[in-house]
Design a protein around this nucleic acid. Structure first.
Lengths: 243, 243
DNA sequence: CAAATAGTGTCTGTTAGACACTATATG
DNA sequence: CATATAGTGTCTAACAGACACTATTTG
């Protein structure tokens, strides 16, 4: 236990953290993107034991000398693999128990991150131990530790956000069309959305800026390209879409 | 860094966790209750440095030999002070950075918990270093570490839940009246709610069981006593109350 | 009876669902 | 022109806000 000290200064000077056996501690970001109609998640191949050779989340240990916050650890690990910082990063949850890592009691602080596929495609294709995996394929893979479960939880949370926000838009390029955004939401929900309902609420909340540009799918009427207003990701509709 | 090993068994046998300097790691539950028309939070007086003598959350270190999960750590710390396990415990968020604890890089995994005042009143009154503090007074106190900020975050999250669920009901006794529940929600929201709206949505979702009992306020018509159905805390209304 | 508290009836306003319609592109 | 895709008009249904009303208790 803590030794008694006369005052806080003496206490700090003689404090030995290693008196306690600390649990293992990592940060694991779940980075999603949306490309060619598919949801994808970034996985890396583990080069060390345990679970060496298995694919898992691009996480790692906190660098106490260089990371000032947990968010910085998450961003640093993502930047190592993608070369960039994602426009959306939010804490998901923390899982910690005695059994998830063979080495010891282990804790991981998980984050959900979103990025446009095009922004990091170049860098990822040069890194042989990292790749985008289609979310629907992940359920058939054996991932390291409890990473499958963490990815499912992240997906579930993002699905909920698709019901009351346009947060998923951060998985698209800076400019995008409303049909693209709707298809992304539909991929997350696993069901189609009424086009009119989807557009009406985004219109009324004034979340997007018309860029004046359009983009055609090849045939058919071209769609207007929009850009998100700042903080549109923080807006929540008072009423949810059907689940 | 990790030494290379021929296989996972050899790796685990020679693995030395202490090669890494781990951050400090605690679990901090924020336990709320509602009593005599007031929201209260459980605080304890710190008996050790740092911040010795200040009031703070009833948290502590993980006991790797006895806690199997983070939730168990949270429940164990709460049981030490209140004598019981709360009916509601949910992870809030994890805060971790280089500055929040003078000793070193530090992480705390925070939980929101709710309990009826009567259930733990007897035990708490015997523990001199723990007491219920009115939430409105907390903002005028200097608490240990960043515990004021954590309590504000917990309160904010609970306020949001009051808009789309009846989770706050876990801060009431097992049986309670609708006026009691409404007043609790109003305390969280800081504004009054239309009685009809509040009751209509709870009726339609069939979240409560009529116990057949009634309770009078002394004068006036007695109110029906209800009990929550199992999992009513997980129900979310599709539409929020006004914020 | 009055006063106090619990609980209901009912109208309005907002917003999502449904779905048919119009608009604009390619070939 | 046909086909494909984008975008709109408009009716209905669900549900929260407002607020007046009724119901049941004590004194």
């Amino acid at each position: 236990m803590l030794t008694s000290s006369e005052n806080e200064e003496t206490f700090l000077a003689t404090y030995n953290k290693r008196e306690f056996d600390a649990p293992l501690m990592t940060v694991d970001p779940v980075l999603f993107t949306y490309h060619e109609g598919l949801l994808k998640v970034l996985l890396v191949k583990r080069s060390n034991y345990p679970d060496k050779g298995l694919w898992g989340l691009p996480g790692g240990f906190i660098d106490q000398d260089n990371d000032q916050t947990l968010e910085q650890t998450a961003l640093r690990k993502l930047k190592e693999k993608t070369g960039v910082s994602p426009p959306y990063l939010e804490q998901l949850y923390t899982v910690g128990n005695a059994k998830r890592d063979k080495r010891s009691w282990s804790i991981t602080i998980c984050y959900t991150a979103l990025i446009a596929h095009q922004i990091c495609e170049a860098q990822i294709s040069t890194v042989i131990d990292a790749k985008w995996i289609m979310l629907d394929d992940v359920s058939n893979m054996t991932l390291a530790f409890d990473h499958s479960h963490i990815i499912n939880t992240a997906r579930e949370r993002l699905k909920q956000k698709a019901l009351y926000s346009i947060v998923p838009a951060y998985a698209l390029p800076e400019t995008f069309t409303l049909p693209e955004l709707q298809h992304l939401h539909e991929a997350l929900l696993g069901k189609s959305i009424q086009k009119k309902s989807f557009r009406r609420r985004i219109d009324q909340a004034e979340l997007l800026i018309d860029t004046g540009e359009r983009r055609s799918m090849g045939s058919g009427r071209p769609a207007v390209l929009y850009r998100m207003k700042k903080d549109s990701g923080k807006y929540t509709f008072v009423r949810n879409l059907e689940n």
